[in-house]
Amino acid sequence: MAFARVNGIVLHYELRGPEERPVLVFSNSLGTDFRIWNKVAALLEDDFRLVLYDKRGHGLSEASPQPYAMADHVNDLVALLDHLSIAQAVIIGVSVGGMIAQGVAAARPGLVQALVLSNTAHKIGTAEMWNGRIKAVNEQGIASIAGTILQRWFTPAYCKPENPDYVGYHSMLTRQSADGYAGTCAALRDADLTDAAKALTVPVLCIAGDQDGSTPPDLVRELASLISGARLEIIENAGHLPCIEQPERTAGLIRSFLNQAGIG
């Protein structure tokens, strides 16, 4: 385990793969930690330098008091990469991690070599939806909404109590801090990256799960339409987290995209 105090907060991170290879940075979704990327990372780490980290208020990273702004998460990641002396990287983000990736590209364009935006958008949800979720988490705990969230994360075939992986991810979700979860809900509520998406000039791969209940394919398609030259891929038999349900397909798309972009 490795920790760094950056941007006024302690972040948990891990480095994998050869030091001399191109850098891939993985940013995780709301209510998860960087272990959601483990199977994808295992398929890429021989050929790339990987940075995995837990964003503010998630996993083993410090949870500052809520609410958060998207800029908090963006500045955390920029500061972590500066701490690690990483001058350029491909940022791969799922859900809110994809919004963080877009934010980093807007704030520090020279830092970003390419983007992989998985199951994300330029704007996700409504203020009413996020306020309702914040209220539920603060008054009743994450467990009170966990069943509904997991149904949006996973396909019906995966989302069953007899599936031990499903039970494990339920535990991952419910063990996140209330400040981290509700704080990031506020960041999502207030973020609109439409202009930032339109301004992107680096190579971009957008990925959608065909059964995603949180950021459906049409929403990811809308994001891709804002970005000049963006490539859109839809993964079959996947919900909101293809990195968990379809890691081989996810890693294969990332690898082919990077090859096409001349990275690696």
Rank of each mutant, 00 (worst) to 15 (best):
L200G: 07
L11C: 06
L115G: 03
F3L: 14
V167D: 03
I100P: 00
C159S: 11
Y169P: 04
R189V: 09
A197C: 13
P22D: 03
P67R: 03
G110H: 02
E162V: 03
C185I: 09
I92P: 04
R49F: 06
V25P: 00
K123G: 10
E62H: 09
E233G: 05
G97M: 04
F3R: 14
G59L: 04
G132K: 05
I145L: 13
L24C: 04
T120N: 01
Q140G: 03
S144A: 13
D190E: 14
S61N: 12
E236N: 12
P242C: 03
S85E: 07
T194H: 13
K55M: 14
A208T: 14
Q102S: 03
L111A: 02
I86G: 02
R249F: 13
L223E: 04
A71M: 13
L24G: 00
I100E: 00
L188S: 07
K39F: 14
T215A: 02
A178W: 00
G264T: 15
R49T: 12
I207D: 02
G132S: 10
L205W: 06
W37K: 05
P247G: 10
A42H: 05
M99D: 05
L77N: 07
V202H: 01
G239S: 11
L150T: 12
A261Y: 15
G98P: 03
A187T: 11
D190Q: 05
H12I: 05
G98S: 06
E233Q: 10
K123E: 11
D54W: 02
A41V: 15
G31T: 08
V94N: 00
R249V: 15
N119A: 08
M129E: 11
I100R: 02
F34I: 09
M129I: 09
I149G: 00
E139Q: 13
R16F: 08
C159D: 12
N138L: 09
A230F: 10
G252L: 15
K39G: 05
T32A: 05
I124M: 10
L30W: 00
A114V: 07
G262N: 15
Q246N: 14
Y13W: 07
A199T: 12
A186V: 10
I9V: 15
D54K: 00
